[in-house]
Computed example of a mutant assay.
Amino acid sequence: MRESSKNFAPADWLEAELADTLDEDYELELGEAGLSLEIKKIYQRVHGESLPRGDYFRALLRLQAELIKLQDWVVHHKKRVVVLFEGRDAAGKGGVIKRITQRLNPRVVRVVALPAPSDREKTQWYFQRYVPHLPAGGEIVLFDRSWYNRAGVERVMGFANEEQVEQFFKDVPEFERMLARDGIQLVKYWFSITDEEQQLRFMMRIHDPLKQWKLSPMDLQSRVRWEDYTKAKEEMLERTNIPEAPWYIVEGNDKKRARLNCIDHLLSLFPYADIPSEEIELPERIFNPDYERAVLPPELYVPQKY
């Protein structure tokens, strides 16, 4: 017999959906709640009062709604967008990328986080392994670290010599101008945190089992070579800040405000507008009174432990 819709309450359904959405957001925030008590006390003492959770989520949901409009505009006009996220380890790049992509279509907006180059890739033109990931019309690509590895970690850790670094600085402005001339809009963000803040975040990762996977030997070396990274960053920003693709610095010590500020700024760079769309109607299901649903064997089902 066909299910009756007599007891269907749209308001109740929407309220349940909203609750699920908020649960999803809370889940993303568990990293801060999972800290050991002592580290959490230190963090709160350093940062003071954070942005109230309610205010943060209201602002985030509003900005994410605007990101959906931007996504539809990019698809409709076949725009090509590249956004680079750079910064020190634990600066908050991954957090803002998660919030940008959280409600967007992964067929339109994708994240590129390349591993260390293979032996074969090391013999190629430096930019070659990044080029295949550039967007086609109607796509947005977010690079979680990018070709600027050469000016940062590769230089500081000795994976690239000074001749290679100098060649990079000569090539990268022209490479980015080529992208701009071809119609790609390139946005470059540097997430800035203080020495003390990075140390605190590393301590949080060390003491939080949910975050220890984020620590690598390279991350720990970045603490030792803080000043070397600072000098490399300053030269990189000075030599690669071009009109066609300027750098934008995001103050990252407060994670929540950094996410909101970055998303708000990203939206401000595009003249997007609402795209007209046809009203969607759910079609009626074809109902066959003679059809009987087959009973499947119980061993096919995942055990309901929760």
Rank of each mutant, 00 (worst) to 15 (best):
L51D: 00
E279T: 14
R53A: 11
P303N: 06
Y272P: 01
L200A: 09
L35P: 00
E38T: 13
P10Q: 09
S216Q: 06
E162T: 08
N161Y: 05
R223F: 04
R53N: 05
R99E: 08
A116H: 08
R285Q: 12
E32H: 12
F85L: 08
E38G: 10
V83M: 10
F127R: 01
S36D: 15
P115M: 08
M236Y: 06
R80K: 15
Y126W: 04
Y130A: 08
W125N: 08
L296Q: 11
V153E: 06
N149I: 02
P283L: 08
A91P: 00
K211F: 03
L61V: 05
L186G: 02
P52K: 08
Q212P: 01
M218Y: 05
Y130N: 07
V250F: 02
P132Q: 03
Q71N: 09
L269R: 14
D89K: 08
H47S: 06
V75M: 15
K305Q: 13
P209R: 06
L215E: 07
V295L: 14
A245G: 07
L67Y: 00
Y229V: 03
R259S: 03
E196L: 12
E27I: 05
D25C: 12
T123A: 15
W13P: 01
R103W: 10
G138N: 03
L179F: 04
K170S: 05
C262S: 15
F127S: 03
D195S: 11
D89R: 08
I140W: 04
S192W: 04
W247H: 07
H76R: 15
R107D: 12
Y43F: 12
F175R: 01
Y26R: 15
R45N: 11
M1C: 12
I100Q: 02
E86H: 04
E24C: 07
I280R: 14
Y306S: 13
E121Q: 15
P106G: 05
P276E: 10
W125R: 09
N105Y: 00
I206C: 06
A11M: 11
K231R: 15
P132L: 00
R259T: 06
L266C: 09
E281M: 13
R53L: 14
A258E: 06
G94S: 03
E238D: 12
R285S: 10
S277V: 12
M1L: 14
E197F: 05
F127M: 09
Y148P: 01
A160R: 00
Y301H: 09
V112C: 04
A294W: 09
K305G: 05
A9M: 11
Y43Q: 11
V112Q: 02
M218T: 10
K188T: 05
I68V: 14
R107M: 07
V156W: 03
L35K: 04
R177M: 11
K41Q: 14
L22E: 12
V82K: 06
E299Y: 08
I275W: 00
D264Q: 15
K79N: 07
N253R: 07
V96A: 09
A33E: 14
K93P: 01
D55M: 09
A11Q: 14
R201V: 06
G31C: 07
D274G: 10
I275Y: 01
L63H: 10
K214E: 06
E15P: 00
N241E: 05
L61C: 04
W125E: 06
S50Q: 13
Y301E: 07
I280A: 14
P276D: 09
L51G: 00
I39W: 10
K40Y: 11
